[in-house]
Simulated scan of single mutants.
Amino acid sequence: MLTKFVFLQLNLQKKVTHVIVIGGVDYRLQGEIEEKTVSKPKQHCVTKTSAVKKLKFFLRNLMDLNLDNSTLNFHWSDKEVYWASFSHKSKQETSEHLFYKGFLNGRGARQGNRCLVRVKKDDCGEKTYWRRHFRIIDLMHQITDLFNKSVLNEDYLKVITPHLAQIDNVSSFNKICTWNGVKEFGREEFVVVEEYLDEMLDELIYDNDYSNLSALLEALSHFSFIAMREELLFCNFHGEIRNSKECYVTCSTVHSKKQEFQDWGDKGIAGITNFFTQHKCNKWCRKIWSSTDNKTIEELEKMNKYHC
């Protein structure tokens, strides 16, 4: 892809503004001009600031420009090894995370597929930071599996499993454009890579009678609250139906009574209350109660021993 670069210099009130236009987006570098009197009268010299030096560095390394960020290799499965490449500009953000669209590169059937890269927003996402994230994912797997067994009676809903990867190469734009809403990656930065879901398919009728995906996923949220003894609620599920027998889901929000999951958009009791204020129980919710047998109760007891 051919990228167009336009460089302008504007002199306004003793400030130098360098404008770099890349793909229709402009990145501005501003630097103060310091005036120093030299031996000859009425002559001045200009001391360039760090912003100008960054522009010089950018121009010197124009041929070696890295447009994308990339990770080191990580194992997707026993037979699949990938590394992810993604843009310098995030597509979506929450209070805790930035989300980037990227691609999988490497060895395996998913090579060339789109992926979603989750990044810690403000600070460096070290490996230890993501531990609780993966513990929540593990709990989500347990709840979904139990919902499949006790309510659906088949292994229909599958939770998308994320993968931890370390940053390798950093985009040149991330290095020089951090004030323009661009993430500045640390040396030991880790990110989470997962499959990219297309737009949620709300209404799709087919043989197994899951005619309304949104209603089914709301019932899963309701079930999660019951499974966690009304201490924790998984909500804002998104799903993608890939064939008549499987639906892959991911969850973006977790609310808890103690409000201890800020990186999941946790609004505490207010978030739980808001969900049930808008929620209308459907046939899948009603089936939760009719299918709760002794075996299910035993599994719920085991699950509640899990400590986040």
Rank of each mutant, 00 (worst) to 15 (best):
I176D: 00
S171I: 06
S172R: 08
H141M: 12
D198I: 08
K158R: 10
D198T: 10
H163V: 00
E195T: 15
I176W: 02
M200R: 05
E203W: 11
L201P: 11
H163D: 00
Q166S: 03
I205W: 13
L197R: 05
K175L: 09
K158A: 05
Y210S: 04
N208F: 12
F185G: 12
D155R: 13
S171Y: 06
N153T: 05
V182N: 01
T161D: 06
T161L: 07
T144W: 09
L152I: 06
Y206E: 14
V159W: 03
E194N: 11
I143A: 13
I205D: 11
D145G: 08
Y156N: 04
I167T: 00
N148F: 03
Y156F: 15
K183A: 03
L164W: 01
D198K: 11
L201Q: 15
D202H: 10
E188A: 07
E154K: 14
N169V: 15
V182G: 02
E189L: 03
E194K: 15
E188G: 05
E199V: 11
I176P: 00
D198Y: 11
Y196T: 04
V159H: 04
Q142H: 12
N169D: 14
E189R: 03
C177M: 03
Y156Q: 04
D155V: 10
L164A: 00
E188N: 09
M200W: 04
T161Q: 09
L164T: 00
T161H: 08
V182T: 04
I205F: 14
Y156L: 12
L204V: 14
N153A: 07
V191K: 07
S150A: 12
K183Y: 04
W179I: 04
F147I: 02
G181I: 13
I176N: 00
Y196S: 07
D198E: 12
A165L: 01
I160A: 08
D209I: 14
Y206C: 14
V182I: 10
